[in-house]
Amino acid sequence: MAMSGGTEDGEPMGEMNTTPLIDVMLVLLIMFIITIPIQTHAVKVDLPQNSDSNRNENIDPVKNKIVVDANGNLTWNGAPVNEVTLTQYLEQTKTISPEPELHFQPDATAKYDRVDQVLAIIKRSNVSKLGFIGNEQYREF
């Protein structure tokens, strides 16, 4: 804190010492800043909850079968599906422990392009248990 001795003629100092006033103001400012509540900008979003009732009845916990027929139509355990539904089923099978087997059976007369599209969907879903069935139909005699 700065102190002034005044003038040499012995008269009292005519200026007010503002140093203690500034110190008090700084303490009050810091106390005010500390007591202000932190403002949070949050957006509440209601997310869907996973439950066992949301599981699809078309998914078998042991094995599932995808068939590509001669016309290129897909079936999942005998029920017709499209690519979006197939992707959802594959994602749901990954959540089951242990992961069920996936059997893939393309028809011998199905177009290769369609079979390749379905295999790409299966690969993107990272299914770990995949088996090809019906390969004997491709054997030459």
Results as ranks from 00 to 15, higher is better:
Gln88Ala: 09
Glu8Lys: 10
Ala120Asn: 13
Glu11Val: 09
Val27Gly: 03
Val127Glu: 01
Thr7Gly: 15
Glu101Ala: 15
Val127His: 13
Asn73Thr: 15
Gln117Trp: 03
Val24Ala: 14
Met25Gly: 08
Phe104Gly: 00
Gln117Arg: 13
Gln49Gly: 06
Lys94Pro: 01
Lys129Asn: 09
Leu29His: 05
Pro100Ala: 09
Ala110Arg: 01
Thr75Ala: 06
Glu8Ala: 12
Glu140Asp: 10
Phe104Ile: 11
Leu102Pro: 01
Thr35Asp: 11
Val81His: 03
Thr7Asp: 08
Ala79Met: 15
Val45Glu: 11
Gln137Glu: 11
Gly131Ile: 14
Ser125Gln: 14
Asn71Gly: 02
His41Glu: 13
Asp46Phe: 06
Gln88Met: 05
Thr19Gln: 12
Thr40Ile: 11
Arg114Thr: 15
Phe132Ile: 07
Lys44Ala: 13
Gln39Asp: 04
Gly134Pro: 06
Phe32Ala: 12
Gly131Asn: 08
Ser4Met: 14
Ser128Asp: 11
Gln117Cys: 02
Arg124Phe: 07
Asn17Phe: 11
Ser51Phe: 00
Pro98Tyr: 10
Ile133Ala: 07
Ile34Trp: 13
Leu47Tyr: 09
Asn50Val: 11
Leu90Thr: 02
Ile34Tyr: 11
Leu119Met: 13
Lys123Ala: 10
Asp52Thr: 14
Asn56Ile: 04
Glu83Thr: 08
Thr87Gln: 05
Asn71Ile: 03
Val27Pro: 00
Lys63Asn: 02
Asn64Pro: 03
Lys123Cys: 03
Thr40Ala: 11
Ala70Ser: 12
Ala108Trp: 00
Glu11Asp: 12
Tyr89Lys: 02
Leu21Asp: 12
Thr95Glu: 12
Arg114His: 11
Phe141Trp: 08
Ile22Gly: 02
Gln88Ser: 14
Glu136His: 05
Val67Ser: 00
Asp69Met: 07
Asn135Gly: 09
Val115Arg: 02
